[in-house]
């Protein structure tokens, strides 16, 4: 990650783009504060959150090396075994070896450890995709709504309406109506997030369009798309990185809730929410298939939120006053 030097103040100097070349503009730190990068590296919340995320993300490529088991293999003989249960197998050469179920098995005899490890893939993918899609769509709508007054009135009423519908109910209804697939789940989580991005982008655009450098750009006849791209867009990047991080966290949470309630990703795909959903009936006797995925889910969301908090404080101190 390269140092992010965007700050609200840095853009005040955008007018001088013609004089200072792009390259030298990059290398000058306009904010008279320590650079964002060094602020990030001194923020304990960023360090801890970042390390935790790195650890969880590393499960994605590492899953096949951590467990030889397939997360979808059922084993009726080994149903509902407690964590630490050992089975004895023979390999191709006839040597005996023991296989330990570190987190026990679920009601179909599937290894919970394997399911949790592989579940990270789906959860992280959903989080990342939702963040990227919601931010992209929200940015586009927000830029247009903020810049064109006529569109604004209509778009914002629609956004207010969307925001009034509780995200979870909107998502549940969308998934149940259009059929539970990974794609519909992602879109169902994206749609309630869009208005929040639109509002953020719009508020930035409204503030920026009053800036003298935008007025100057308009007065010299710069075409609107170029103003949006050159002057407005860069100002949205820092807040959107922060917002995107939080969206990623809440998307992972929402996906888990949807799966947990039985209206999420199809049950054969191992996700943390699905593992917990399948452990609900026998929870009182075998709590492990709820607790282990629960711990991973909590740690992931916690790490992302910590990173988000830290990013917000470091990149955009003005935002840290808001929630």
């Amino acid at each position: 990650m390269s140092p992010i030097r965007y700050s609200i103040r840095a853009s005040d100097t955008d007018m001088s783009d013609n004089i200072i070349s792009e390259e030298s503009a990059e290398s000058v730190d306009y904010s008279h504060q320590p650079s964002v990068w060094s602020r990030l590296m001194r923020n304990p919340s960023v360090i801890i959150g970042g390390l935790l995320i790195a650890l969880i993300v590393s499960l994605v490529p590492a899953a096949p090396f951590l467990t030889p088991l397939d997360p979808t293999d059922i084993s009726p003989r080994n149903r509902n075994k407690v964590p630490g249960f050992e089975t004895i197998h023979k390999d191709d050469q006839g040597n005996r070896y023991t296989q330990v179920a570190h987190m026990g098995t679920d009601k179909l005899g599937r290894d919970v450890f394997a399911r949790v490890i592989y579940g990270a893939r789906v959860s992280l993918m959903v989080g990342l995709l939702v963040a990227v899609i919601a931010v992209s769509i929200g940015l586009f709508i927000g830029l247009i709504a903020g810049y064109f007054r006529l569109v604004d009135a209509v778009v914002m009423r629609v956004m207010d309406g969307l925001m009034a519908i509780p995200a979870i109910l909107l998502a549940i209804a969308l998934v149940s109506l259009s059929g539970a697939t990974l794609f519909t789940v992602i879109m169902a989580i994206v749609i309630p997030e869009i208005p929040r991005v639109v509002r953020l982008v719009r508020s930035i655009v409204l503030a920026i369009r009053e800036e003298p450098y935008v007025e100057a750009a308009i007065s010299v006849g710069t075409p609107t798309p170029k103003i949006l791209y050159r002057h407005v867009l860069p100002n949205t990047i820092a807040p959107l990185i922060v917002q995107g991080t939080f969206i990623c966290g809440s998307a992972i949470l929402l996906e888990a809730i949807l799966s947990f309630l039985g209206v999420g990703v199809p049950p054969e795909i191992p996700t943390w929410g699905n593992i917990m959903a399948q452990g609900r009936d026998l929870f009182q006797i075998y709590p492990h298939s709820i607790f282990y995925p629960g711990i991973f889910l909590t740690l992931t969301v916690l790490a992302i939120n910590m990173l988000g908090d830290g990013l917000r404080d470091a990149i955009d101190p003005r935002m840290s006053k808001e929630i």
Partner: peptide
């Protein structure tokens, strides 16, 4: 506060 914000309600419920 940071932790409380991140623990899903159904995890707390089951604990």
């Amino acid at each position: 506060s940071v932790i409380g914000f991140s623990v899903p309600v159904f995890v707390i419920g089951y604990v």
